[in-house]
Each structure stands twice: as C-alpha cells, then as structure tokens.
C-alpha cells in the first residue's frame, strides 16, 4: 500500500509521519498521532463526531485524507483549552449545562462551535441550532448544548470586551 511522508501542525505541535495515501485524517490523528479525542461515528460524513479544524475551518476528518493535511494546521479537541488545567469557555459551559452525557459527539460539537463563535460571536439560539445541525447527538436532545453555547458566547464576548 502506497504511503507518503507528511508534515503538519497539530494543536501547535509540528509532526512528521508516514501516512497511507488512502488513510483519512481521522484515522491518522487517532492511530498515528494517538490523539484519540477525535471520534469516528459514521465515517460517511453525516454524524459530525470527527469534526476538527483545518486551518481554522471545521471539516470532517473522515472526509479528508491525511495527505491533504500536508503543511496545514489541525486543531482537535485536545487543542481547544488554553492550558492542561484550564478549559475553553465552550468546554466550561458544556460542563455547567449538562451539554454532554456519553461524550462521544462532544469533540465534534466543540470544534464545530469554536469555528461558529469566531464567525458569529453573538448568535441567536436558532443560529446555534443551524450551526450544529450537522452534528448528531443521541443523548441530550440538543437543548443543553444550545444553552451551553449561548453561555459560552456571552462569556467570550465579555472576556473580549
């Protein structure tokens, strides 16, 4: 099976590794780099669990080949918090609002919403719903995730002010 050596930045750290050319980014992050926070829920681009940021934009790691991430910057759930102890405001708000139960969809929700709040720092609840409408959650019924996002957006606006 043909492989290629690729270099990319993940969560601020430069990595060089061999990747089978047919391997998707999700398998590369999880298997080769050991970053298992990114979860694979369907591997056909519908559930959104594997969402990561590629050069700041939310993409499905199951629909992008690892070799396509050559020389680009990837952010996964492990890279959202400013430090190992602290939490990103979205992470703190998810905990405070019971925005996660089993936690499997959570990394994809967080990365999707990180991008969304950068583009739309003062959203309506409806806009939040649309933003996560490509992320499936079977546990929460979504309302607690929406509430958490509104709270995080408030906190982020206040911190920026």
């Amino acid at each position: 099976m043909s492989t290629r050596r690729i270099a990319l930045t993940v969560n601020g750290t430069r990595h060089e590794a061999e990747a089978p050319v047919r391997q998707h980014l999700g398998d590369f992050l999880r298997g080769t780099l050991g970053l298992t926070g990114t979860h694979l829920g369907c591997e056909h681009g519908v559930c959104g669990a594997c969402t990561v940021l590629l050069d700041g934009r939310a993409i499905r790691a199951c629909l992008v080949l690892a070799v396509q991430a050559e020389d680009r910057a990837v952010t996964t759930v492990e890279g959202l918090a400013p430090s190992p102890e602290a939490l990103h405001p979205l992470q703190a708000a998810f905990c405070a609002n019971h925005g996660l139960q089993c936690g499997f969809c959570t990394p994809g929700m967080l990365t999707t919403l990180e991008e969304f709040l950068r583009d739309c720092p003062d959203p309506t609840e409806e806009e939040v719903r649309v933003a996560i409408s490509g992320n499936l959650c079977r546990c929460t019924g979504y309302d607690s995730i929406v509430a958490a996002t509104m709270e995080a957006a408030r906190a982020m606006r206040e911190a920026a002010a």
Partner: peptide, 17 residues
C-alpha cells in the same frame, strides 16, 4: 458530573482508544 473532566478534554477512553 465526575465524568465531564476527562470527556470534555477529549481524554475519555472508549474502546477504540
């Protein structure tokens, strides 16, 4: 919740991890 601290950081341990 005691579960949240690990799960929210992507440090959970599911079987595929």
């Amino acid at each position: 919740r005691v579960e949240d601290s690990a799960l929210i950081r992507g440090r959970g341990r599911y079987v595929d991890d």
